[in-house]
């Protein structure tokens, strides 16, 4: 079963534990500046929204890469940057419609979410369940359940 990161912004408090977990997993340091997931604080509405790569099936970044440095991890479905192949041309950062693949000055390569090989540190660190790692085919299950509850699980009016 393939799993995906699933984000529910309503549960996000803006604590950035996900960003720290991401940088710690990949760089061994707590540095939100190096995180591949970012939490956006829309101050005037009070909404906090975590955002990262959704692992497109037909990934723009993968197709744009001139040296085929981005490949598919067959086990997880993640599009993974192979650092030894990447030449830092940044074409993928232009191709990606979502901005979720970015250049890293310190390494001269690009980075993006690779689902931590199938055990994403961000989801593990999230204290509120705003970020979960669930069955790719059933990301709607929770919402469906809420509506099912509304439709059929309330005391009958009669």
């Amino acid at each position: 079963m393939q799993k995906v990161l699933h984000i529910n912004p309503d549960k996000c408090t803006g604590c950035q534990q996900c960003e720290m977990a991401c940088s710690f997993e990949n760089y061994g340091t707590y540095a939100t500046a190096k995180s591949r997931i970012k939490v956006f604080d829309f101050h005037h509405t009070g909404k906090k929204v975590p955002y990262t790569c959704t692992q497109c099936d037909e990934a723009w970044c993968l197709h744009a890469c001139p040296v085929e440095a981005i490949t598919v991890d067959k086990a997880t479905g993640a599009k993974v940057v192979n650092e030894s192949t990447c030449v830092g041309c940044k074409v993928c950062t232009i191709a990606c419609p979502f901005g979720t693949i970015n250049y890293v000055q310190e390494t001269g390569k690009v980075q993006k979410c690779d689902l931590c090989g199938g055990d994403p540190a961000c989801a593990d660190a999230c204290p509120t369940g705003a970020i979960t790692f669930i069955d790719a085919n059933w990301t709607g299950l929770d919402k469906m359940k809420q509506w099912a509850d509304k439709l059929g699980n309330q005391p009958s009016a009669a």
Partner: peptide, 19 residues
């Protein structure tokens, strides 16, 4: 009250965001 908000790294999130 609109929502609660955490400070950096906080897993309590007592902060208030109001309109």
């Amino acid at each position: 009250l609109v929502t609660n908000q955490a400070c950096f790294g906080c897993t309590i999130a007592c902060g208030r965001i109001s309109k």
